[in-house]
Nucleic acid binder design. Structure first.
Lengths: 195, 195
DNA sequence: CCTACCGATCGGTAGG
DNA sequence: CCTACCGATCGGTAGG
């Protein structure tokens, strides 16, 4: 409901009707609308952890865990039960220009996700799974962009095929960071480029 | 105002106050809230045309016009006077899950922009400026993703440096589509990869 | 957890 | 373009 109507558009009265409670009965559980918004964010963060962080922890750290995190994230958004797609994309875009504790909270959670991706990429660089000159924040910027773009395409154009485009872009981008094998004559090794 | 508060959050009463008119006086100009929203979209579309389509028409069609369109677009969002960043990103995300004529209109305008980028990329492929096996929709998917991602970073993290990351990603992605020069011994030509 | 209520604001209308 | 008003809904409170 918060994803489709917006975190601000989520009203206590409308929510009370859907859960068949009185408005003030439900209000008493939260104390204020802002607390309702925080509770909603908590719920989404817990679902994100359970769907992505927890299962990805089974993969070995570095490149393989980075790939697993991205796979799980794309699948999570692609098969999301909620209309409105990715809650954090909707909420962070809505609150990007509304300073306050809710925006600050969303920014911290989104940053944490970016940092988690960067951490795995850094491990991959140190382990020699990615080229040593890899710009890790630049790499994660691109990977994150592809997934959010797929979510946007599905929402606005109703094109679920966008998720395959995102997966393909992720594969290509990670492949472009593969370390160059030793090539005695200086010739470039085979590379997987765009498409 | 529509960009920062949302196209739905833009209220006739609040707008009337800022332009120092009576609420119903302003209301009479539009007839309904939906018409206000459409008029707002018209205004944003006209500004977009004037800032991007018109000046880019001076560049020769194909790869160079594609680059010019992207340059102008990034600069337009980067230096936007409105808080809230890219109006079309904010509005299309807000209305992505709200079916109706406003959403349909936003989808058509966004699609038109995507198509304009694809058209220049197609010309570039036909002209031999891009490799013949280029997946044009996949290429534009990535280019579009980078710019929207930069807008999101600036809004949520207040990091204007994200625009340089987007520009860098665009340059790399376009370079990866450069046609392979004839190489008699079959060795891959020099390539500009990620960073 | 409820009923009953508060002032403010919403989109929109009547009448001029 | 205005004043004055409509019913509905908003977040929130009083009192139980």
């Amino acid at each position: 409901m918060a994803t489709s109507e917006g975190l601000e558009g989520l009203s206590i009265g409308a929510l009370a009707k859907t859960v068949e409670m009185s408005k003030s009965g439900l209000f008493a559980h939260f104390g204020s609308k802002e607390e309702l918004q925080h509770a909603t964010i908590d719920q989404a963060a817990a679902a994100f952890d359970a769907a992505i962080f927890v299962p990805a922890a089974a993969a070995p750290t570095g490149r393989r865990r980075l790939e697993r995190l991205l796979d799980l994230w794309v699948a999570h958004i692609e098969h999301s039960a909620y209309r409105g797609g990715c809650f954090f994309d909707a909420a962070s875009t809505e609150f990007g220009s509304r300073p306050g504790p809710v925006r600050d909270r969303l920014a911290i959670l989104c940053r944490r996700w970016i940092s988690a991706l960067e951490d795995e990429a850094k491990v991959a660089v140190r382990a020699g799974e990615f080229a040593p000159d890899t710009d890790v924040p630049g790499l994660v910027f691109r990977l994150h962009a592809f997934v959010e773009e797929a979510n946007w395409w599905r929402e606005l154009f109703d094109e679920p095929a966008a998720f395959d485009r995102a997966r393909s872009a992720i594969v290509d981008t990670l492949a472009s960071r593969a370390p160059a094998p030793l090539a005695p004559n200086g010739a470039s090794p085979e590379r997987k480029d765009l498409e």
